[in-house]
Design a protein around this nucleic acid. Structure first.
Length: 300
DNA sequence: GAGGAATGAGAAA
DNA sequence: TTCTCCTTCCTCA
């Protein structure tokens, strides 16, 4: 379900948990049949570009994961839980045992264990992740991964040079609210950040790309990096400034205070009080904006 | 228990 | 522009 910030977060967490060691992997319900390619091999690093994850096992083998709209990970420590729900793939840390976990098993598959009850393992060291509902979970070569990254636009979370993306916006007749959703313009931005970045720049979603001022473009780009980096609070995206949120008790940011316009249609704009608007199917998704703060005449 | 919506994107028409 | 993939969670009855 996440936008780019959530993807980079998973990459960092999974790299910290698994990289540098052999990992176990399977697709216990037959939804992922290539787990053998990776099972028992050492994970070298976890790549993140836009909304794409790449678990790099070296030797020209990368596990590509794209969560899409419905995909999500669950993670935990302790013993691997029983299979439940619709599980695509799971990955867990492997502890090396002195004897094959399964007598007669091949070295690659049999000499690592996490929950086989052999007693060779400290349960506190076990970490696991489960993946369900992804758009893609498949084997990539280095070349295929490179083709993917070349197709994507600059990613605000990867310190990329934004000029390539700016150039595409400047020559496009499409609305900026549509361009922000296109991953070959900017990678990693999704429907929440589209709405919130446009609002924070007081930019109308309907202005053609070629008519958006450079100042606003740069402002949105400069905003996007830190905003996406700080983006997750309790697995939620928060984009409101503290001064624009109502004061409530405790340090927790309430879900209804997290956004300026996203899913706030019918509610008053936090800045001007005008009712926030919603339009269905704008670049295939629901668009939210304030018709006053983001009026087309506001463009610099 | 049904039905819809959700932080996505590729293919089809 | 419309369909289709796919899973979970929430609302409503």
């Amino acid at each position: 379900m996440p936008e780019g910030n959530g993807i980079h977060r998973w990459a960092a967490r999974h790299e910290a948990a698994f990289a540098g060691k052999p990992v176990r992997m399977d697709g216990p319900q037959g939804r992922f049949t290539d787990s053998d390619v990776f099972d028992g091999r050492k994970l070298e690093r976890v790549l993140a570009v836009g909304k794409h994850l790449g678990y790099d096992f070296g030797k020209d083998r990368i596990l590509h994961v794209h969560l899409g709209l419905q995909g999500d990970f669950t993670e935990g420590s302790g013993p691997l839980p029983a299979v439940r729900g619709a599980l695509r793939m799971r990955m867990w840390s492997a502890a090396k045992v002195k004897q094959p976990a399964v007598p007669g098993a091949s070295k690659r598959h049999g000499w690592y264990s996490s929950d086989d009850g052999t007693g060779h393992l400290d349960p506190e060291q076990v970490a696991w992740v489960e993946l369900r509902g992804p758009t893609d979970c498949s084997v990539y070569t280095n070349e295929k991964w490179q083709q993917l990254t070349e197709r994507l636009g600059p990613d605000p979370l990867n310190q990329d040079d934004p000029e390539r993306g700016f150039a595409k916006v400047r020559k496009s007749k499409k609305a900026i609210g549509q361009l922000l959703m296109e991953q070959d313009v900017f990678a990693g931005i999704g429907n929440i950040y589209r709405a919130e970045l446009l609002f924070r720049a007081r930019q109308s979603p309907f202005t053609a790309g070629k008519d958006v001022s450079d100042a606003v473009l740069r402002k949105m780009w400069k905003d996007a990096g830190p905003l996406m980096q700080a983006g997750m609070v309790d697995r939620r995206i928060v984009t409101t400034l503290a001064k624009d949120r109502p004061r409530r008790g405790g340090g927790v940011i309430a879900a209804e205070d997290a956004h300026y316009v996203y899913r706030r249609n019918g509610l008053p704009c936090r800045i001007c009080g005008t009712k926030v608007m919603k339009m269905e199917g704008f670049a295939g998704r629901n668009l939210f904006w304030c018709p006053v703060c983001q009026a087309e005449e506001n463009k610099a």
